[in-house]
């Protein structure tokens, strides 16, 4: 079995443990052997993007030290993978030795769907769901990491599921971390449009692959469209796995 180190974002650890559990379940189903390093905390994404880059230097170094020995590191959040791959070089720009170590680790960090499809070569996890889903292209996956096909292949691998088109699927959901707090009216308008497009799509479930988008859209739906459902792709796959008879 392939050993794989779980890079669990703080948001998942603190609020969305079930997403982490779902991830463990599907990695095991796909033939991976996940393990977890409990000394991990946060990659520093909120500090970096809000401009407090200096405060993230130690967090970046911690990340490197914790994960350096791992062959393969997997994360269910595009934004945290983006942080390690694209923001750490900026954070560590004055310390070339650390920058080098960070980029070595970064080359072994994968977003979950990327890991399943590209590394393990698995598209059909043996899941079944009779219904319609739509897929929101999280900015962190689509534009920051260039991951667009892998999540859709995993959805196509689910028996009975129809992936319906979503208008403006590739535009932001309006989360943006600090942005949602500082410009609530703008953020609210953007997520409102996203949810309207989802409702119009006719899908039962909106799937996505980043906990940030998940909290934002789920939070909006709870208040305005409680009949609708939004899930992280990992939650969806894990919830619909068929029992293996062996």
């Amino acid at each position: 079995m392939e050993g794989v180190s779980l890079f669990i974002p703080c948001s998942v650890d603190l609020l969305l443990a079930d997403l982490g559990q779902a991830m463990v379940k599907i990695i095991r189903r796909a033939g991976g052997n996940p393990y977890y390093r409990p000394e991990q905390t946060c990659c520093g994404h909120p500090a970096i993007t809000s401009g407090h880059v200096d405060l993230a230097v130690d967090l970046a170094k911690r990340f490197v030290e914790i994960f350096e020995k791992d062959e393969c590191i997997v994360c269910p959040a595009g934004s945290c993978v983006y942080t390690v791959k694209h923001l750490y070089p900026r954070v560590l720009k004055d310390e070339p030795a650390w920058q080098k170590r960070a980029s070595d680790v970064a080359s072994r960090v994968y977003e979950l769907s990327e890991y399943l499809v590209d590394v393990l070569g698995v598209e059909d996890l043996g899941a079944q769901y009779p219904g319609k889903v739509a897929y929101h292209e999280s900015c962190s996956l689509l534009r920051h990491l260039g991951i667009d096909q892998q999540p859709k292949r995993l959805i196509s691998g689910v028996k009975g599921t129809e992936l319906v088109p979503l208008v403006e699927a590739d535009t932001c959901c309006g989360f943006g971390g600090e942005f949602a707090l500082k410009f609530p009216e703008l953020s609210g308008a953007i997520v409102g449009d996203k949810v309207q497009n989802f409702v119009n799509s006719g899908a039962d479930i909106l799937l996505l692959a980043d906990p940030g988008c998940l909290l934002n859209i789920a939070g909006y739906i709870m208040r305005h469209n409680p009949e609708k459902k939004v899930m992280h792709l990992a939650q969806f796959l894990a919830a619909n796995l068929r029992e293996v008879t062996a």
């Binding site: 443990a17 982490g20 953020s187 409102g192 939070g219």
Partner: peptide, 27 residues
């Protein structure tokens, strides 16, 4: 539905309830 902090968030959204345990506790 609301908190005494993060007011901007709750202007248009709720926050999903935190899971009963953390991931690390479960692990």
């Amino acid at each position: 539905k609301a908190l005494p902090i993060l007011k901007g968030w709750f202007q248009y959204r709720d926050l999903p309830a935190p899971a009963p345990y953390t991931f690390r506790e479960w692990w």
